[in-house]
Design a protein around this nucleic acid. Sequence first.
DNA 1: AATTTATTTTAGATTTGTCTAAAATTTATA
DNA 2: TATAAATTTTAGACAAATCTAAAATAAATT
Lengths: 221, 221
Amino acid sequence: MYTETEENYLKAIYKIAQKQGESSINTKSIAEEMGTSAASVTDMIKRLSEKSLLQYEKYYGVSLTKEGQKIAVHLLRKHRLWEVFLHDKLNFTWVEVHEVAEQLEHVKSDLLIEKLDAFLGHPKFDPHGDPIPNSNGSFTFRNQIPLSNIREKNIRIHVLAVKQHDSSFLKHLDDLKIKPGEVFEIIQFTDYDKSMKLLTKNGDQIVITHKVADAILVRPQ
Amino acid sequence: MYTETEENYLKAIYKIAQKQGESSINTKSIAEEMGTSAASVTDMIKRLSEKSLLQYEKYYGVSLTKEGQKIAVHLLRKHRLWEVFLHDKLNFTWVEVHEVAEQLEHVKSDLLIEKLDAFLGHPKFDPHGDPIPNSNGSFTFRNQIPLSNIREKNIRIHVLAVKQHDSSFLKHLDDLKIKPGEVFEIIQFTDYDKSMKLLTKNGDQIVITHKVADAILVRPQ
DNA sequence: AATTTATTTTAGATTTGTCTAAAATTTATA
DNA sequence: TATAAATTTTAGACAAATCTAAAATAAATT
């Protein structure tokens, strides 16, 4: 069994690897992700390396081993299932779920997580639209593209997920009534600043910047 | 905010005080409850004392302060609400719930616990029949007496709670189909060994020893 | 290629929670 | 009441996770 901190390091490394698309992760980026110093990261890296959870070459960064990856993915599964529980059953907003799930994901009981999964109806995606790995660690993939890629007007757009997860961004979207599951229509493109005007289901017209549109993943046609 | 270990000490001390009906708790009993050494207990006692969570007089044991009690009761509330969740929603048996709830009770979010309480329909008792304190820390009391106190035959007996919580005892009761919420009838008293024969709802006849009957709390007439 | 800058590692210290062994104190017993 | 037994505390050590400051190494720049 691993400590909560060890688990958090594995998760952080996995997350960085996903984002960067690279396998070799440097100390500094881990330190940033974990909100700690590079020195602390080096210490922890050595421990995790000795436990064969990651490969470590001095001065040249780390990469997760199969076992390390397995743990990280299992944590992701637990985190996202708890988020669904908090959102669907306890009526937390999709902005609020993350923080509490960060704690719940460390509860150690495989039975718990399998029963929770069943209780929730084996959901495939969390409230942010991120895929929930199954108990074997495999994800459900689906086609989704940034809203900013779409150039066609007057078609129904389905929001599937978001690329960013910081609460200020989520709150902004929430204020605009944009979240996974919602549907809207693009009614105007502005070439000048690449912003777009959307028509929401209840008739509201909202304008979003290119930066925001780029972080919203939608169903392609 | 307090560490998980600090919380567990407060809970242990509260539990011992309840059981013994005394306010002054000695080091040894805390060590036993926590599964650690008396030396470790002394260390922790000092810390908790400095944080004003308990009163400590060297060599003469400890007692919880108002603040210490408040934390212990809040933990009890969280523990028991999670037990209801695990039992009622996830179909854990009443034997299994305790261990997982031990972990869940340390998740820190008051919002979570209030939402969970509402989701569960504001339950007043957990799967073992123990009362769940409300958010102000007050318990629902009800009349309940040990089954061993009853001398009357051929009346409906309602099981409300149990006095012991170790899993071997719970498993034994579960095998006999006795648990809170069940109803049965006493059909025979044996003076010799103080055992009693019960008739369960589905027609089974079971015999329980005096020791077991003493740990079962039932609704008095 | 030499030097500056950025990154990483090491060294040494701190906190939390634990341990064992020994000393101190209280309680029980003769 | 003196001694033995039980309990509690102290002292010193250890592991986990962190920190700061300094040293080592790699990467970037002139």
